[in-house]
């Protein structure tokens, strides 16, 4: 900002020193022009810095996106649902499994029973696990048949579990929701971890941007001396460097979002397959524009802060030799 010259009496005042809003706007316009000129003159150095910042930013952004998706996934499940999987012993064949299903269905507290035969289990496993050859090598079918049971509303679950466990064909029994609850607990933990990582990487961005600006200031030392000689304030000299820091952050944020979007696109198809396996229409959420904008603003602000921190210090120390 251009302040009026201090303690200048009219007699002393030479024909210079326009003030006011116009001068302030012109100063910013010329700072932006100087910033863009610098980008045009040395594109490689700038691109390199932006790339380093983008890689640093991509990690926390990626983690946030993954966590967000996991969270959405687990929220989609109604955790009050009490569907259970009853794994039968491996020596129980499909016919026996069906007989057992028939005998328990219609029993107290049971709304629905579905049989996954050993062959079906193997087919699903082959289709999604990718262990085709390993299964062929084992020979035979190592997988048990499974009864998927939906308990009726208000059922006495403990009695139901006890009754099912007492069947000689039953090996183990699992509530599907157990792992969802575990996943939710892990997501909560993961969120904390991501927040810590994001905080650390924000500091890294601050340092990287600050250091890049420090180098830029050192490289332009002679120019800064000339500016000081002809009456530029520190604020005036600092301004293009601040714009540069902000631009570094914002562009790196955009680039990082691009990298994360590309990674998401890469895992979209496998994720859809996995969702189908669980009879879910779940789709990976990509980065929305508001989120990208928020990343750019936040990263730009950090870049600006880093630039301010070093530029202010180093420009202050330079004076005409």
């Amino acid at each position: 900002m251009t302040r009026p010259a201090a303690k200048v009496t009219p007699r002393q005042r030479s024909g210079i020193g326009a003030g006011g809003l116009g001068a302030w706007l012109r100063a910013h316009r010329s700072a932006i022009a100087a910033t863009l000129q610098q980008f045009a003159r040395h594109p490689f150095a700038h691109v390199l810095t932006i790339a380093v910042l983008a890689v640093t930013l991509a990690l926390p952004i990626g983690l946030y996106v993954v966590l967000g998706n996991v969270e959405r996934l687990t929220e989609a499940w109604d955790t009050n649902q009490t569907r259970m999987s009853v794994f039968l012993k491996t020596n129980v064949d499909d016919a026996q499994a069906r007989r057992l299903a028939a005998s328990v269905s219609g029993g107290p507290g049971i709304a629905n029973v579905r049989v996954i035969t050993r062959a079906e289990a193997l087919d699903e496993y082959r289709a999604y696990s990718g262990f085709n050859e390993a299964i062929d090598a084992i020979g035979g079918n190592p997988l048990p048949a499974v009864l998927v049971i939906d308990p009726g509303e208000g059922a006495d679950l403990q009695a139901l579990v006890a009754r099912l466990r007492s069947q000689p064909e039953v090996d183990t029994l699992k509530f599907d929701m157990e792992w969802v609850q575990r996943l939710q607990a892990m997501t909560a933990l993961g969120q904390r971890a991501v927040r810590v990582v994001a905080g650390m990487l924000a500091v890294a961005v601050l340092l990287i941007a600050g250091n890049a600006i420090r180098v830029a200031v050192a490289q332009r030392r002679e120019e800064i001396e000339v500016y000081k000689l002809v009456g530029a304030t520190d604020a005036y000299i600092r301004r293009p460097f601040l714009y540069t820091g902000g631009l570094y952050g914002a562009l790196a944020g955009l680039l990082a979002c691009g990298v994360v979007a590309a990674m998401l696109a890469g895992v979209r198809a496998p994720a859809r397959q996995l969702a189908q396996l669980y009879q879910s229409a779940f789709e990976l959420n990509a980065l929305a524009w508001p989120a990208i904008l928020a990343v750019m603003v936040a990263a730009g602000f950090i870049g600006l802060l880093g630039a301010w921190w070093t530029a202010a210090h180093h420009i202050r120390r330079i004076d005409v030799r």
Binding site: A5, Q12, L229, D234, Y236
Partner: peptide, 23 residues
């Protein structure tokens, strides 16, 4: 003249060096 006011002071002076110090 405090440090912060030096730039405004210098705007009333023209300084020429032996090495012209042009950009």
């Amino acid at each position: 003249i405090r440090r912060a006011h030096v730039p405004y002071y210098r705007r009333r002076i023209g300084f020429i060096f032996q090495d012209h110090r042009l950009l």
